[in-house]
Amino acid sequence: MIRVQGLEFRYQRSDFVLRVAELEIADHERVAIVGPSGSGKTTLLNLFAGISTPDRGTVQTAAERVSSMPDSARRRFRVQQVGLVFQEFELLDYLSVFDNILLPYFLSSALRLDDAVRTRARSLATDVEIADKLARNVAKLSQGERQRVALCRALLPRPRLVLADEPTGNLDPSNKHRVVDLLLENAQAAGATLVAVTHDAEVAERFDRVLDMAALQ
């Protein structure tokens, strides 16, 4: 569950101010956020994830009051509770597919890498049909495959919240639909709340609810 109240956020050296008076997203809900460029969609996601903190107001994500946590707690919360999917996938080209999926476990001591995790990574890869490419270098994958690796990486730590920033922005139409399917199916299967930013109406339609930034402000 995400609850935002009286939120106000401004970037340093910028006139842009993001204001959200009130917003609630229920557990397991799958929500698309739409709006024009520069309307603060990504900023809102960052606030949900605890990457940024609001100047005013509160953000409560998965029963945690993210907006008032100290940095280290927010990082721990993020790595354990939030799965992030980026528009540019942000995979590490010096790692294999498998190692990219395991990346959060290499980066944080809050996660413990063991055989169960590896087994789960393999099964996630099987779910998104990249099990035969685990040993490959990610640079050798197609765009669609790369986004699937990014999806596996986001889902592996069993997050309660999956935040996707333009997950289909770099994909051709056929891949776009498959990735959206995967995102929706897997978030649901994992029991996670899914919030995706998109400017693609066709994609947005597939979600349980569509939030328009213009309406939020």
Partner: peptide
């Protein structure tokens, strides 16, 4: 990206 995922500045 690593920072976003949750890596600390120390790590």
């Amino acid at each position: 990206t690593m920072t976003k995922i949750g890596a600390s500045p120390a790590s």
